[in-house]
Structures are given as structure tokens and as C-alpha cells.
Computed example of a mutant assay.
Amino acid sequence: MATRKVLKKLKKHKDNKYLWFLISTGILAGLIYFSDPEKFLQSIRSADPLLLIPALGFGLAMFPAWSYVWYRVFQKSEIHMPYRKAVRIFMAGNFMNAITPLGQAGGEPLMAYLVEQNTDASYERALSSIFSADIMNGMPPITFILGGTGYLLLFGSLNTFIIQTVYMVLLVTAVGSIIAYLLWFESGTIEGSILKITRKISQKTGKGKELVKTLEEKLEKIEESFKAIGSDPKYLLKTSIISHAGWLMQVFNFVILMHALGYNPDFTPVYFVVVISGLANWSPTPGGSGTYEAAMATLVTIFFPQINFATGLTIGILFRLSTYWPGLILGWFALNSLNGEVEKK
């Protein structure tokens, strides 16, 4: 039954999936056209193919790291499964995120159904655990940007772009930290506020009593899950270190791609390009496609003035071909294998 729910929701997204991938492809085609197609093709041809293999290796290495973050969060919220299955569920979830028109956050409800059907966990516990894992995997860009800014403040110089980025990151950090603190260490605060507002609306309208009762039961399960996850701060800290290691794999990938195109970049600008580009994952296209490559190409030209936009776009596309697209293909196989297992039960 649960499998049918997932497949039904996937089918519901089918038309939108093709539309959004068409839009993403259109964005990329437009970028190549306006950036000078000849320069783009020239930079593609100049890439050293032997260096693309280790770049792909680092691109794939981040998936086991981020999957392990999921695994640890699941264990803490008492969703028991082998690590190998956690990897497959993470990869399947990565695929589902890519077929929704809401960027990185679009597939979470579908992921929760996938966890529910493959474990004995409730949907509410699965969703709260996935959201917690997302928070953990979303921390590295913030800490890396703040750390890199501190380094430049002490040993380098800050330009206007970096300063503006830091202001934005500080705002996101403040809001995100408050939400994470309330969910993990003051469980019930946000859930209680949602329930309070719902009750008031129900009392004023005289409707929705059953909805309030159902919501109360679901929020209670969600609260219990967040409380379990936040019960051991040291456990969360260790999990966060693993997530940061996954992000470093992307940095190594980018450095190798730069060398493949004949550039020997300094670490600091690479650090900022990769981390800031990652924010484009949250753009409203499947997996951030199109906007991610555009963001990376723009950042490359800002931090490496000697590189033109066409070459920057080449780097962005090669980066995605060795990080995002392999995960998408593996995720499709993972989703089908998981659904096949459930059908046999």
C-alpha cells in the first residue's frame, strides 16, 4: 500500500518533471549560447580526460558521507536499518528531490513515505528525521563561509561581494540556528505554536475539530522524534563533522577540474566558489539545474578574473556531470530496487 502511495505521488509529478527539466535544459542552452559557444567547446576539448576520473571519484564520495549522516540521525530517532539500506534510501531521496520543481527541498515528503514503507517507522518520525538530517547536511556551507571569511579577515582582504554574502549567511545562520535549537532542544515549542493557532481557527470557525485532533497526534510523534535526536549534542556534533567531510569532497572535485582545464587555483577562492554555489541547490528547478551552473560560472569569473564566462560555465557543467548527475542515475536504480523489495513483501 505504501509503495502505491509513493508511485502515485511520483506519477502526479510526472508532467511537471518533464516541464522543469525542459526549463533547466533551456537555461543551460541559453547560457552556452550567450557565453560564446565556440569558447565553450574549446574549453571542453582542452580538458584533460585522465583528470576527470579522480574528479568523478571525489564527486561520488560525498554520497556515502551524507548517507551516513542520514544513518546516524535515523539510529538516534530509533529508525533501525543497515547502513547499506540508508545509502539506497538517501540516493532514492536524492532522485526524488531532482524530479520536483522545488529544488533541494521538494522531495522530503516523498522521502518520508519511502522511509515509512521500508522500515517500521511512522511517517511523522520519518519526516522529522529527514528534516533533521537536512539541517545537518545544510550546516557545512554556513560554517565554511564564516570560516573562510575569518581567514580572509586575518590573512587576506574582503571584497564587497564576500561581505554581502556574509551578511546573508549570518541572517540564514541566525534563523536556522533558532529553528534547529527549538526543534532539537526545546521540543514542543514550534509544534505547540502550530497546534495553538490551529485550535484558535477551529474555535472561531466552529469547524475542524477532527483535524485538530489528528494534527495533535501527528505533532506529538514529530515532537518525540526531534526530542530524541536532540538528546545528545555530542552525537550531533560528530555527525556534523561527517557532513563537512562530504562537502570537502566537492572542493577536491572542483580543484581537480580546474587542473584538468590547465589552471592551478589557490585554495581560498575555490573554497568560496564551491560553497556559495551550493546555495543554488535551493533554487526552484529540479536539483537546482541550470541556476547552479550559472551561479558557479559567475562565481568563477568573480574569483578568477582571468577566466571568461564560457570557461567558467564549462567548469560548472563538468562539476555537475561528476557530482549531481551520477547521483541522479544511481538514485533512480535505488528507488526502483527499494520499491521492488516492498512489492515482494
Rank of each mutant, 00 (worst) to 15 (best):
M136G: 08
R125D: 13
P140I: 00
N137D: 11
L152V: 10
E116Q: 13
L154I: 09
G148P: 05
L153M: 14
Q117N: 13
G147M: 04
S129N: 07
V115R: 11
L154M: 06
T119W: 04
D134Y: 12
I142G: 02
S129I: 03
P141W: 11
V115G: 04
M136A: 07
L154Q: 09
M139R: 09
G156K: 14
R125T: 14
G138H: 05
L154K: 13
G150S: 06
I142V: 15
G138N: 07
S122K: 05
L114M: 12
T143W: 10
L127D: 02
F155T: 08
Q117D: 10
L127A: 00
Y151M: 07
N137I: 15
Y151P: 09
L153G: 12
N118G: 07
L153F: 14
G156Q: 08
L110G: 03
M136R: 01
S122F: 03
S129Q: 00
T149F: 15
L127G: 00
G156I: 02
A112K: 01
F131C: 05
V115A: 07
Y123S: 00
L114D: 05
L152T: 07
N118P: 06
Y151Q: 08
S129T: 06
S157Y: 12
M136E: 01
S128T: 11
Y113W: 15
I145L: 05
D120S: 13
R125V: 11
Y113D: 12
L154T: 12
S129G: 03
G156T: 06
N137V: 15
I130G: 04
M136H: 03
T149H: 08
G138A: 10
A121K: 00
N118Q: 13
R125C: 08
V115D: 00
D134Q: 15
S122L: 10
T149M: 04
G148C: 11
G147S: 10
I135H: 12
N137W: 04
Y113L: 14
L158F: 12
T149Y: 12
M111Q: 11
M111L: 06
L146I: 15
P141K: 05
A133K: 03
T119H: 03
F131H: 02
M139I: 15
G150R: 10
L146H: 03
T149C: 09
M136W: 09
N118A: 08
A126M: 06
S129M: 01
S157H: 15
M111S: 08
G148Q: 03
I145C: 02
G147Y: 01
R125A: 10
G150P: 13
